[in-house]
């Protein structure tokens, strides 16, 4: 079996955590970590684990194109547009963990099969990855007139990028709730909680659905929770879905795998885990073609 070689651009926290998840992916081979700061912790860790490292950013990677088939971009939305164009230009697949959203939104349990050949896919937001599987699962059984999600994350796990542009989270997640989740209208709310010790990421999904489909909705949700658990083992429902007339509420908790991030940062973990899952599926398809 031929594994796909992986490059990660952005040797910060997300990139570093992602590296550990790539190591566990069946069809992926961690190859090179790309940063712009030679002293970055992420580059050091990658080197220690025996991977190539490049500290001259995208230019450095473009000089060694043989090192990667699939490239994850964990930098910034601003940088991503340029990266994507250069990488697609030389035939590399790009998985975008920034809010740039150039390529189609992907949620592994919802629409991964449609985008295995896309040159660029976008991972939406942490709140999106945690909640859209549920909305999509409900939508398999009932029309979803409206869906709303509330993501509560510990203050410590919300980085400066998220904080400086919190509306981007709200807008992007709302859009993906409609586009991928299938809700006619979507809304997203994010709450930061500074409690110490930090709280585990929690997500609540409220949706307006057709009445009389409770059993089907519950079965569909249970099924998707198991599917998400395949790539995020700490993803679980708290209690059963609660029905109140047309409204259904689902309570989720996301505990991270504790690779590089502490386990409470389920929000960061689900992003890297979902991205690794998408790349693994792309690589799997490529390996079966060869």
């Amino acid at each position: 079996m031929r594994k796909s070689k992986v490059a990660i651009i952005g040797s910060g926290n997300i990139g570093t955590d992602l590296m550990y998840k790539i190591e566990r992916s069946e069809y992926l081979e961690m190859s090179v970590m790309v940063g712009i700061d030679p002293n970055s912790e992420g580059l050091k860790r990658a080197k220690e684990r025996g991977y190539e490292t490049i500290d001259t950013g995208i230019e450095g990677l473009l000089e060694k194109t043989e090192l990667a088939d699939i490239v994850f971009d964990a930098t910034t939305a601003k940088a991503h547009a340029g990266h994507s164009e250069l990488l697609n230009g030389i035939g590399k697949k790009v998985i975008d963990l920034t809010p740039a959203a150039i390529g189609p939104f992907v949620v592994p349990t919802a629409n991964i099969k449609e985008h295995l050949d896309a040159s660029n896919v976008n991972m939406i937001t942490c709140g999106g990855q945690a909640t859209i599987p549920i909305i999509h699962a409900i939508n398999q059984v009932s029309q979803v007139e409206y869906a709303e999600i509330v993501a509560t994350v510990s203050s410590k796990s919300a980085g400066p990028g998220t904080r400086a542009n919190i509306d981007e989270f709200t807008r992007t997640t709302s859009r993906a709730i409609e586009k991928i989740g299938g809700a006619q209208k979507g809304k997203a709310i994010i709450i930061l909680n500074p409690a110490d010790p930090p709280i585990i990421m929690r997500d609540t999904i409220h949706a307006l659905v057709e009445e009389g489909k409770e059993a089907g909705i519950i079965a569909s949700i249970n099924k998707v929770v198991q599917l998400v658990q395949e790539y995020v083992p700490g993803y679980r429902m708290r209690g059963n879905p609660v029905f109140d007339g047309r409204k259904v509420s689902v309570f989720i908790e996301v505990e991270g795998a504790g690779d590089f991030f502490p386990p409470y940062s389920g929000n960061l973990d689900i992003m890297t885990a979902a991205a690794a899952k998408v790349a693994n599926e792309i690589a799997k398809k490529q390996s079966t073609f060869v």
């Binding site: 509330v150 509560t152 709310i189 709450i191 930061l192 909680n193 500074p194 409690a195 709280i199 929690r202 609540t204 708290r238 209690g239 609660v242 509420s249 309570f251």
Partner: peptide, 17 residues
């Protein structure tokens, strides 16, 4: 005790359960 902050209305339900 859980140091809930404003906006966490969904937590009320969970705590009651």
């Amino acid at each position: 005790r859980m140091r809930a902050v404003g906006g966490q209305e969904d937590l009320i339900y969970d705590v009651a359960r």
